[in-house]
């Protein structure tokens, strides 16, 4: 299969101490995303996940390395890459409907007004918000706002969807509902997606592949976990699959102590950057 997105030797350094020295947030980040694949990235705060995602979006720029999407370098923001921001980022002076039509107008410049409106309603309907389309973001609950954000991102039919902790700010019940909704939409659309999350269960539910980042500074994408659970999945059924707890335990273990182990192995020379990311299928291992 042709690789859709290739991230090669990504490195980000920030000047510190008034520019006298540099802090390397992450380095030697390598991974690929195939077409139709759902990839999540998990890591502790400060490891630079958001910078990786913003670099993919073209909103931030890595110090070293390159990102290629369909063999074209990513050098700036593009309508080919939709972003769902953590805090929904709807424009508060526009209604839910107008927030989406604005996005569609930007992507499909020659689309007639009626079609734009039909398309906007279609995507609002997809997230179950057709009845609230004329409400301003301030009149919507947190979960509803995030759903409008999802509808907006899907409405421009991006080749790659980027999500920065899309449900991080929501309560557990709302989050669960939205996760189910997202599973359904992603199954239907075969959307290629890259997501940052802190939620292990969310990552397993949605992903084909989970990238694990070690702790910063000098964080790496150390492991690549294959989620070997057939789709379609649902929150209710996935926990019954034998692979679920194998994967879950593996992830928890990595987050608790794996990062330190990796660091030690690097120092001892047991592994080098060339090994990263180490591919693991916790289910098959047994």
């Amino acid at each position: 299969m042709k690789e859709f997105l290739v991230v090669k030797d990504l490195e980000k350094r920030f000047p510190i101490n008034d520019g006298k020295s540099e802090l390397t947030v992450f380095k030697n980040i390598n991974f690929t995303v195939n077409k139709g694949e759902f990839v999540s990235i998990i890591g502790h705060s400060g490891c630079g996940k958001s910078t990786v995602l913003n670099s993919l979006a073209g909103l931030d720029f890595p110090t070293e390395g390159e990102i290629n999407m369909l063999d074209k370098p990513v050098i700036g923001p593009s309508l080919d890459r939709g972003v769902i921001f953590q805090n929904h980022s709807l424009l508060p002076w526009l209604s839910a409907f107008k927030n989406i039509t604005m996005a569609i107008d930007c992507k499909f410049k020659d689309m007639p007004k009626e079609d734009v409106e039909k398309r906007a309603i279609h995507f609002l309907d997809m997230v179950g918000l057709k009845d609230s389309m004329d409400k301003k973001p301030s009149e919507l609950s947190g979960g509803m706002k995030q759903r409008v954000g999802i509808a907006r991102a899907f409405s421009i039919a991006p080749s790659l969807l980027l999500m920065d902790e899309p449900f991080g700010a929501l309560d557990a019940l709302t989050r669960g509902k939205l996760q189910d909704q997202l599973v359904e939409i992603c199954d239907k659309t075969q959307q290629t997606t890259f997501m940052i999350t802190h939620d292990i269960d969310e990552a397993i539910l949605l992903s084909d592949k989970i990238l694990l980042m070690s702790n910063g500074p000098e964080a790496r994408v150390a492991k690549q976990i294959i989620v070997d659970i057939p789709k379609p999945r649902s929150r209710a059924s996935i926990v019954k699959h034998p692979a679920y707890y194998e994967i879950r335990n593996y992830l928890v273990e990595f987050l608790v102590e794996g990062s330190e182990v990796i660091k030690q192995q690097l120092i001892n020379g047991e592994i080098t950057d060339k090994n990263f990311p180490i591919e693991v299928n916790p289910y098959k291992k047994k």
């Binding site: 909103l59 923001p77 939709g82 972003v83 921001f85 980022s89 604005m102 930007c106």
Partner: peptide, 21 residues
């Protein structure tokens, strides 16, 4: 900045960003 980022990801030019955002 989030709103400006929305404009950026929608590939709005400077002029459009000024008037729409």
């Amino acid at each position: 900045k989030d709103w400006l980022n929305v404009g950026k990801t929608l590939e709005m030019g400077n002029f459009k960003t000024a008037f729409k955002v």
